[in-house]
Protein backbone atom coordinates (compact mmCIF):
# COMPACT_ATOMS: atom_id res chain seq x y z
CA UNK A 1 0.00 0.00 0.00
CA UNK A 2 1.34 3.42 -0.94
CA UNK A 3 2.80 5.44 1.88
CA UNK A 4 1.57 8.90 2.69
CA UNK A 5 3.79 11.87 3.50
CA UNK A 6 2.96 13.64 6.75
CA UNK A 7 4.39 16.77 8.32
CA UNK A 8 3.76 17.57 11.95
CA UNK A 9 5.33 19.21 14.97
CA UNK A 10 6.34 16.91 17.80
CA UNK A 11 7.55 18.51 21.03
CA UNK A 12 8.41 21.68 19.16
CA UNK A 13 10.36 19.97 16.37
CA UNK A 14 9.04 19.77 12.83
CA UNK A 15 8.98 16.19 11.58
CA UNK A 16 8.41 14.88 8.07
CA UNK A 17 7.78 11.19 7.58
CA UNK A 18 6.32 8.57 5.30
CA UNK A 19 3.69 6.36 6.92
CA UNK A 20 1.34 3.64 5.86
CA UNK A 21 -2.21 4.96 6.22
CA UNK A 22 -3.00 2.20 8.71
CA UNK A 23 -0.18 3.22 11.07
CA UNK A 24 -1.57 4.31 14.42
CA UNK A 25 -0.16 7.47 15.97
CA UNK A 26 1.11 5.53 19.00
CA UNK A 27 3.16 3.20 16.77
CA UNK A 28 4.45 6.13 14.74
CA UNK A 29 5.58 7.90 17.91
CA UNK A 30 7.12 4.85 19.55
CA UNK A 31 8.58 2.96 16.60
CA UNK A 32 9.41 5.63 14.00
CA UNK A 33 10.14 8.58 16.27
CA UNK A 34 11.52 6.44 19.14
CA UNK A 35 9.44 8.40 21.64
CA UNK A 36 8.56 5.53 23.92
CA UNK A 37 7.12 7.58 26.79
CA UNK A 38 3.51 7.12 25.69
CA UNK A 39 2.59 3.53 26.47
CA UNK A 40 0.50 0.93 24.69
CA UNK A 41 -1.87 -0.48 27.28
CA UNK A 42 -5.28 -1.76 26.28
CA UNK A 43 -5.17 -0.79 22.58
CA UNK A 44 -8.95 -0.34 22.80
CA UNK A 45 -9.38 3.35 23.76
CA UNK A 46 -10.08 2.52 27.38
CA UNK A 47 -6.97 2.84 29.50
CA UNK A 48 -5.48 6.21 28.48
CA UNK A 49 -1.83 5.10 28.79
CA UNK A 50 -1.20 6.28 25.19
CA UNK A 51 -2.60 9.79 25.79
CA UNK A 52 -0.74 12.61 24.06
CA UNK A 53 -1.67 16.23 23.38
CA UNK A 54 -2.67 16.97 19.78
CA UNK A 55 -3.72 20.47 18.72
CA UNK A 56 -4.66 21.38 22.27
CA UNK A 57 -6.69 18.24 22.91
CA UNK A 58 -5.82 15.11 24.85
CA UNK A 59 -6.15 12.13 22.53
CA UNK A 60 -5.67 8.40 22.89
CA UNK A 61 -3.01 7.84 20.28
CA UNK A 62 -3.98 4.17 19.85
CA UNK A 63 -7.18 5.41 18.20
CA UNK A 64 -5.73 8.09 15.95
CA UNK A 65 -4.10 7.32 12.62
CA UNK A 66 -0.74 8.96 12.01
CA UNK A 67 -2.19 10.39 8.79
CA UNK A 68 -4.88 12.13 10.87
CA UNK A 69 -2.07 13.90 12.73
CA UNK A 70 -0.77 15.45 9.50
CA UNK A 71 -0.34 19.19 10.07
CA UNK A 72 -0.88 18.92 13.81
CA UNK A 73 1.07 19.98 16.86
CA UNK A 74 1.76 17.00 19.14
CA UNK A 75 3.22 17.05 22.64
CA UNK A 76 4.26 13.84 24.38
CA UNK A 77 5.60 13.26 27.88
CA UNK A 78 9.11 13.75 26.45
CA UNK A 79 8.18 17.38 25.71
CA UNK A 80 7.11 18.27 29.24
CA UNK A 81 10.39 18.87 31.10
CA UNK A 82 12.40 22.03 30.36
CA UNK A 83 15.36 21.69 27.98
CA UNK A 84 17.72 21.86 30.99
CA UNK A 85 15.97 18.88 32.55
CA UNK A 86 13.94 20.80 35.12
CA UNK A 87 10.77 18.80 35.67
CA UNK A 88 7.38 20.21 34.72
CA UNK A 89 5.18 21.03 37.73
CA UNK A 90 3.09 17.93 37.00
CA UNK A 91 6.14 15.67 36.87
CA UNK A 92 7.36 17.20 40.11
CA UNK A 93 3.90 16.74 41.64
CA UNK A 94 3.72 13.05 40.72
CA UNK A 95 7.17 12.59 42.25
CA UNK A 96 6.52 14.61 45.42
CA UNK A 97 3.04 13.24 46.13
CA UNK A 98 3.81 9.61 45.18
CA UNK A 99 1.35 9.78 42.29
CA UNK A 100 2.71 6.56 40.81
CA UNK A 101 3.77 3.10 41.80
CA UNK A 102 4.56 1.03 38.70
CA UNK A 103 4.53 4.12 36.49
CA UNK A 104 2.84 2.56 33.48
CA UNK A 105 -0.12 4.96 33.43
CA UNK A 106 1.94 8.01 34.40
CA UNK A 107 2.81 9.46 30.96
CA UNK A 108 -0.84 9.32 29.95
CA UNK A 109 -2.00 10.69 33.30
CA UNK A 110 0.40 13.62 33.08
CA UNK A 111 -0.49 14.47 29.50
CA UNK A 112 -4.21 14.37 30.33
CA UNK A 113 -3.69 16.42 33.51
CA UNK A 114 -1.65 18.92 31.48
CA UNK A 115 -4.62 19.67 29.19
CA UNK A 116 -7.06 19.63 32.12
CA UNK A 117 -5.05 22.33 33.91
CA UNK A 118 -4.81 24.41 30.72
CA UNK A 119 -8.61 24.42 30.53
CA UNK A 120 -9.30 24.62 34.26
CA UNK A 121 -6.30 25.98 36.20
CA UNK A 122 -7.94 25.52 39.59
CA UNK A 123 -10.01 22.32 39.50
CA UNK A 124 -11.76 20.84 42.52
CA UNK A 125 -10.90 17.26 43.47
CA UNK A 126 -14.17 16.15 41.84
CA UNK A 127 -13.24 17.98 38.63
CA UNK A 128 -9.79 16.36 38.66
CA UNK A 129 -11.39 12.93 39.05
CA UNK A 130 -13.81 13.57 36.17
CA UNK A 131 -10.98 15.07 34.15
CA UNK A 132 -8.86 11.92 34.38
CA UNK A 133 -11.79 9.54 34.02
CA UNK A 134 -10.39 8.28 30.72
CA UNK A 135 -7.15 7.15 32.36
CA UNK A 136 -6.90 3.95 34.36
CA UNK A 137 -4.40 3.33 37.15
CA UNK A 138 -4.28 -0.12 38.70
CA UNK A 139 -1.85 0.74 41.51
CA UNK A 140 -2.56 3.92 43.38
CA UNK A 141 -6.31 4.02 43.93
CA UNK A 142 -6.04 7.51 42.40
CA UNK A 143 -5.76 9.34 45.77
CA UNK A 144 -2.16 10.38 45.24
CA UNK A 145 -2.72 11.13 41.56
CA UNK A 146 -5.38 13.66 42.56
CA UNK A 147 -2.97 15.11 45.13
CA UNK A 148 -0.21 15.28 42.51
CA UNK A 149 -2.41 17.18 40.07
CA UNK A 150 -3.56 19.54 42.83
CA UNK A 151 0.11 20.09 43.77
CA UNK A 152 0.89 21.02 40.17
CA UNK A 153 -2.16 23.30 39.89
CA UNK A 154 -1.10 25.18 43.03
CA UNK A 155 2.49 25.49 41.86
CA UNK A 156 1.48 26.67 38.39
CA UNK A 157 -1.03 29.17 39.81
CA UNK A 158 1.59 30.55 42.21
CA UNK A 159 4.02 30.98 39.30
CA UNK A 160 1.36 32.75 37.21
CA UNK A 161 0.55 35.06 40.13
CA UNK A 162 4.22 35.83 40.70
CA UNK A 163 4.69 36.62 37.02
CA UNK A 164 1.71 38.99 37.14
CA UNK A 165 3.08 40.91 40.15
Amino acid sequence: MAKTQITLTINGQQVEALVEPRTLLIHFLREQQLLTGAHIGCETTHCGACTVDMNGKSVKSCTVLAVQADGSDVTTIEGMAAPDGTLHALQEGFSEMHGLQCGFCTPGMIMRAHRLLQENPNPSDAEIRMGISGNICRCTGYQNIVKAIRYAAEKMNAATKEAAE
Binding site: G48, K57, S58, V59, T63, L116, G131, I132, S133, G134
Partner: peptide, 9 residues
Amino acid sequence: IADPQVRYV
Protein backbone atom coordinates in the same frame (compact mmCIF):
# COMPACT_ATOMS: atom_id res chain seq x y z
CA ILE B 1 -20.53 9.92 26.57
CA ALA B 2 -17.26 8.01 26.99
CA ASP B 3 -14.44 10.04 28.59
CA PRO B 4 -12.69 13.38 28.01
CA GLN B 5 -10.20 12.10 25.42
CA VAL B 6 -12.96 10.47 23.37
CA ARG B 7 -15.19 13.55 23.62
CA TYR B 8 -12.41 15.73 22.12
CA VAL B 9 -12.45 13.60 18.98
